[in-house]
Design a protein around this nucleic acid. Structure first.
Length: 256
DNA sequence: AATTACTCCAACCGCTATTAC
DNA sequence: AGTAATAGCGGTTGGAGTAAT
């Protein structure tokens, strides 16, 4: 271990230390932090060097205030995944897990508690996304297939083309739905586009949804619900747009 | 003006997972 | 296959800055 006999420095980093660490990390690569610590002559542990680099020195860090959009994403993903800060941070390019964690503790934890269950419940899981505000009497067919992930186990069946899911009414189309949908739709397909979505892109910058309702000729428009309204015959299409081109369309259609 | 309370966040610590040998 | 080293993750702490008294 580096400088076993000497006392390792702790606490705040000096500008000179930052410069030296930056130079050596750039030169030697972002690995072997113990080696970097030794070779750089910094009286720091490799672990400390790594932490400083990842949280402060590495290029492309955004810094500055978390935007309202980023905040929404943090709330949403925390509702889904809990304290998985590194995982959440991967969805926010330029932000570190430490930053997200601190932001949550200082800004959002209290806020979400105050708001009670209303917000966090909405984001808490995928099925609830589908059911929220919902008219649970309507059944919708989800037209994209194959969703089976150990991490995201919430939507169970793997063959979506055969499953019917409860979808809510038109209030489903609220704007914040876009990023929540992004979170799981890309995993639904095994085609080439999936790899693209999962690649090192620019996060949410390159993916959004464009929901639209249309009347479906296939359904029997004469069917009435319990209130006497025709609720059949519509189809919801959501386009995933990546790098300014439409990549995939996901359709939810009413089951007739 | 001095003191206390509070907020924020960088940095540390302990643990687990992964990689190298 | 086993062990040590390294990387990664999440919880916690401590100090600086600010607001309240």
């Amino acid at each position: 271990m580096a400088y076993q006999g000497d006392k390792l420095r702790k606490g705040s980093w000096l500008e000179e230390e930052d410069e030296r660490l930056t130079a050596f990390a750039t030169l030697l690569g972002e690995r072997k932090w113990d080696s970097i610590a030794i070779l750089s002559g910094l009286m720091r542990s490799g672990k400390s060097c790594r932490m400083r680099w990842l949280n402060y020195l590495q290029p492309n860090l955004k810094r500055g205030h978390i935007s309202a959009e980023e905040e929404q994403i943090v709330i949403q993903l925390h509702g889904q995944w809990g304290n998985k800060w590194a995982r959440i941070a991967r969805r926010l390019p330029g932000r570190t897990d430490n930053e997200i964690k601190n932001y949550w503790r200082t800004h959002l934890r209290k806020k979400t508690r105050e708001e009670g269950n209303s917000q966090s419940k909405v984001y808490s899981s995928k099925p609830e996304l589908l059911y929220q505000n919902g008219d649970s009497t309507s059944a919708w067919k989800y037209s994209i297939r194959d969703y089976n992930s150990a991490d995201d186990h919430i939507i169970g069946p793997t063959d979506f083309s055969l499953e019917h899911y409860e979808l809510p009414c038109m209030t489903y189309l609220n704007p914040s739905y876009e990023t929540r949908l992004y979170d799981w739709i890309p995993k639904l397909s095994n085609d080439q586009s999936q790899a693209e979505i999962h690649g090192e892109g620019n996060g949410l910058d390159w993916c959004f949804c464009d929901p639209a309702w249309k009347y479906s000729e296939d359904c029997d428009p004469g069917s009435l619900d319990s209130l006497g309204f025709s609720r059949l015959g519509y189809e919801l299409s959501i386009h995933l747009i990546v790098n300014m081109r439409k990549l995939q369309t996901v359709s939810f259609s009413d089951v007739c």
